[in-house]
């Protein structure tokens, strides 16, 4: 572990101006949901209203105002694939149970922050994205802007809520609650540059072990959100985990949209000018 991490697992005192993040290695997630519980305990997140989803062991459903960590359970394939055989596990090689703990991506280009009209969302000294509830006016622009569907307004107070990467803990030199609670270190916390290197090395390992569809998610800094502060190692395509394959910060298109709008306005003006000129020049032909 680098000198940027202190004895309590959080940012070392001197680690200012360093971007921190998560690396969630789903290949070793066991689906215990300790991250969900630790997050709710530390952050005082209210119960969420779902009861029984009948969707594997996932009763959380999605990330939202009242679920800042969400463990996805994906059942792939079949156990009765016509291979016959006897006893439990016959044909089981065609089946697998994937688990992955999802969280706010803490994007390099955070759409939520860019559309926020009040400045309630800000980038911290650790490069993470946090909502200030006392500034948030509940307009909900961030909710529609987030390409991952992470941030959400809470029914009870109207404010927008999401993972803070335990900003308060980080300021106290502690690692986020989910990372500390994770019994397998599927959730790792650290300086993002180090995590990016670690994630690439782990991917090579996992692929070499036969997981040919394994891939990193959020690692590509040229993607539509400029890469994320929360990296994931997935064992299959993002869609399998209900993650968007090509997330884009909507405001990224602003310049092009304004340019296009400008071009359209120019074209309209030219057309108008032309039509006016034509009007004076000699009538319309129908």
């Amino acid at each position: 572990m680098s000198g940027l991490i202190g004895p309590e697992g959080g940012p070392a005192p001197g680690a200012t101006g360093v971007r921190f993040g998560f690396f969630t290695d789903s290949s070793i997630c066991i689906g215990c949901k300790a991250c969900e519980v630790a997050c709710k305990e530390w952050n005082g997140v209210p119960d969420h209203p779902l009861d029984f989803t009948a969707n594997s062991y996932d009763n959380t459903g999605t990330l939202g105002a009242n679920a800042w960590r969400h463990v996805a359970f994906v059942e792939q394939g079949t156990t009765t694939s016509g291979r016959g055989g006897n006893g439990p596990g016959a044909g089981a090689a065609d089946f697998r149970w994937l688990m992955s703990s999802d969280v706010c991506k803490h994007c390099s280009s955070p759409a939520c922050l860019e559309v926020c009209p009040t400045g309630a969302l800000f980038t911290t000294e650790f490069g993470t994205v946090v909502v200030q509830d006392d500034v948030c006016n509940g307009c909900g622009y961030c909710v529609t802007a987030c390409p991952f569907g992470v941030i959400e307004r809470r029914e009870s107070d109207g404010g927008a809520w999401k993972c803070t990467m335990c900003y308060d803990r980080m300021r106290g030199a502690r690692e986020p609650a989910c990372a500390q609670a994770c019994p397998t270190d599927s959730i790792q916390f650290g300086p993002l540059d180090e995590l990016r290197v670690r994630a690439s090395a782990r991917l090579a390992e996992v692929v070499a072990a036969g997981e040919e569809r394994a891939q990193l998610y959020g690692h590509d800094q040229t993607d539509g959100v400029g890469g994320t502060g929360a990296l994931f190692l997935l064992l299959d395509d993002p869609e399998v985990y209900r993650l968007p394959p090509d997330p884009v910060t909507p405001t990224r298109r602003l310049a092009r949209m304004w340019a296009m709008a400008g071009a359209a306005a120019g074209a309209l003006a030219a057309l108008l000018a032309g039509s006016l000129a034509g009007g004076t020049g000699g009538g319309r032909h129908r």
């Binding site: 029984f52 009948a54 594997s56 059942e75 394939g77 079949t78 156990t79 009765t80 016959g84 055989g85 006897n86 006893g87 439990p88 596990g89 016959a90 044909g91 089981a92 089946f95 149970w97």
Partner: peptide
């Protein structure tokens, strides 16, 4: 009980 349909509960050939 509520019903959870899953491939994990594989039938046995016995």
């Amino acid at each position: 009980a509520r019903v959870l349909v899953t491939e994990r509960m594989a039938p046995l050939e016995v």
